[in-house]
Design a protein around this nucleic acid. Structure first.
Lengths: 143, 143
DNA sequence: TTTAAAGTAACTTTTATTGTTACATCAAAA
DNA sequence: TTTTGATGTAACAATAAAAGTTACTTTAAA
């Protein structure tokens, strides 16, 4: 299974956007994360649907933040990306009438749910403006 | 990304084995989880390497538990399967010199590590004999 | 009218698990 | 001693989801 790096990549882009007061193009974002503008648009479109960014076509178009990073959490972005399953561990479901399969899956599910709940709780506690705020502010001052 | 269902499947098999006092063949195990004997051997070979099961070739051959299920935890089996990454979330690593990428990945990594630690801790607290012991014992009595 | 941008459909590539085929090896049974 | 039933294993195909790519449409500013 290939890893889903959309969350990491899009956070990277959003933090960059904060420091730029013009619309940022998909082309520029693609350079930030070493990929193709179409890949960027695909992911950014999900954030636009959830109202974290806006986009405009045509000359001097591009993407803008729709609200301050302080008002967006990691959990918000995770949700906007579709709330996909976060675990590589899958449960077999070929014999749902088998009590052993049920018991095994119930145990695994309980543990995974607890771990996921913790993870989402932490994501909900981190706003995007906090992502390396210390390092980044000193870095920006150097330029 | 396809899910890794080896843990769920092999636990299912191990609990079944407990109730059978003869060697169990790969063919029989394959039926339990609706797959191919080769797939079973591949996964079971990892458990044999870690000394949780033994196998014998030839007539009346097959697989046997090497120790009581009460002496094996979910974590033991998870380790035996190779301790693979449990998250579908990946971190981008194209710009390791970029402070923003660093900050984003550090935040995500911290949260994922905490969630993984909780999950492995829980896995370590569950021995295989506890997997649905109540349901399974009443089920076995009915036959 | 040209140009610079997003929007989007369709297809290919990648990557790891899973599935399959084929055959070697081994040990018990006939 | 030969047959049979089992594991061991190499090599390859199928699957699935993200990521990458190509090509084209639409839009709006220059």
């Amino acid at each position: 299974m290939r890893k889903d790096s959309r969350l990491s990549r899009v956070l990277h882009i959003l933090v960059h956007m904060q420091a730029i007061d013009r619309p940022v193009t998909s082309e520029q974002m693609a350079e930030m994360i070493s990929t193709n503008p179409v890949v960027v648009r695909r992911t950014m479109a999900l954030l636009r649907t959830a109202n974290y960014v806006t986009s405009t076509k045509g000359h001097h178009g591009g993407w803008k933040l729709a609200k301050p990073l302080a008002n967006i959490t990691l959990l918000d972005i995770h949700h906007a990306l579709g709330d996909g399953s976060i675990f590589t561990i899958g449960l077999s479901d070929e014999h749902t009438q088998c009590v052993i399969e049920q018991a095994v899956n119930e145990a695994l599910n309980d543990v995974m749910n607890e771990a996921e709940a913790l993870m989402l709780k932490r994501f909900g506690q981190i706003t995007l403006d906090k992502l390396g705020a210390d390092k980044i502010s000193s870095y920006l001052k150097e330029r």
